[in-house]
């Protein structure tokens, strides 16, 4: 599978032949009534995009990271765009893919959080809090619903957190197709090529993740973010890192930089830019 957001959900050319670009000139839903066409086209590509989100479980929680960049095609267009979002008290949702769809998702998540707080006394210890699993289930339904309307939200989401009742770490993925899965380490986009092998070296199973310390997990994530910055041209040095722990709650740093880089390998790479052989 090609993990470039532009290719998400597209049939591969090798399998189905080249994409018929005439379809891309089809009218959109708004023009439906005025055009003589008998089909509609909704979103077929993301416009402003965020790259990978990566996350791993450890003994008592989850570490999740995403950089703070929104690209317009290959142009690194907006800096300081946060893509990790706190929902409720023990959940962080990481969002990659189309940034305007992400912003739409945020208003939905805000509403979800507020509706849960209605008539739900926050000061008592007897609160029916939003759990990561509820938020994930809701988002997964939303994503699948939208893809079934042939009008997907062009994102891949990682929901991370701890269940405030049981203290169990939670980590699950859902994307624009409504596909969902859980794993001790999850990455979206380019991260699933570059970060996952590194993270699986740390913890290849739930059992191994349950042995992982926060420091190990954090280092794994930081190293992966470094590798991603080396090799993913849509990534930035500056990123956000959140730790959700069952005992200490959410620790969120939106201003981390990739450190201890070595670009020595770059001198051996040829074939792009202004470099001459």
């Amino acid at each position: 599978m090609n993990h470039d957001p532009y290719s998400w959900g597209r049939p591969s050319d090798a399998m189905y032949g080249q994409y018929n670009n005439a379809i891309a000139n089809a009218p959109n839903t708004l023009e439906h009534h005025s055009s003589g066409s008998n089909f509609n086209e909704n979103t077929t590509r993301p416009i402003v995009t965020g790259t990978s989100v990566i996350a791993i479980k450890y003994k008592t929680g989850v570490v999740i990271a995403a950089d703070n960049l929104a690209s317009y095609g290959s142009l690194l267009r907006f800096q300081g765009i946060e893509r990790l979002h706190k929902v409720g008290k023990t959940t962080v949702v990481g969002i990659s893919g189309d940034v305007s769809d992400m912003q739409h998702l945020l208003t939905i998540l805000d509403q979800l959080e507020m509706e849960n707080n209605y008539d739900n006394d926050e000061y008592s210890d007897n609160v029916d809090e939003l759990q990561p699993s509820y938020i994930f289930e809701y988002l997964a339904n939303l994503m699948y619903h939208r893809r079934s309307k042939m009008n997907p939200l062009w994102n891949a989401l990682i929901v991370s957190g701890v269940d405030s009742k049981t203290g169990k770490p939670f980590l699950e993925y859902v994307n624009l197709l409504g596909v969902k899965y859980a794993s001790p380490s999850i990455a979206t986009g380019f991260g699933s090529h570059l970060a996952i092998p590194l993270l699986r070296k740390l913890a290849d199973s739930e059992e191994e993740a349950a042995e992982l310390t926060l420091e190990q997990a954090k280092k794994g994530i930081k190293d992966s973010m470094k590798v991603l910055f080396y090799r993913d041209t849509r990534s930035s040095k500056n990123y956000s890192l959140a730790v959700i722990d069952k005992d200490t709650g959410i620790a969120y740093d939106n201003n981390v930089d990739v450190e201890d880089m070595s670009w020595k390998f770059a001198k051996d790479i040829t074939g792009y830019g202004t470099q001459r052989v």
């Binding site: 209605y118 008539d119 739900n120 029916d128 759990q131 699993s133 509820y134 994930f136 289930e137 809701y138 339904n141």
Partner: peptide, 15 residues
């Protein structure tokens, strides 16, 4: 149950 994967809360039901 379907949307949130959660049994409905009695308080919500009463509202």
């Amino acid at each position: 149950d379907m949307v949130y994967g959660k049994k409905i809360n009695l308080n919500k039901l009463s509202e």
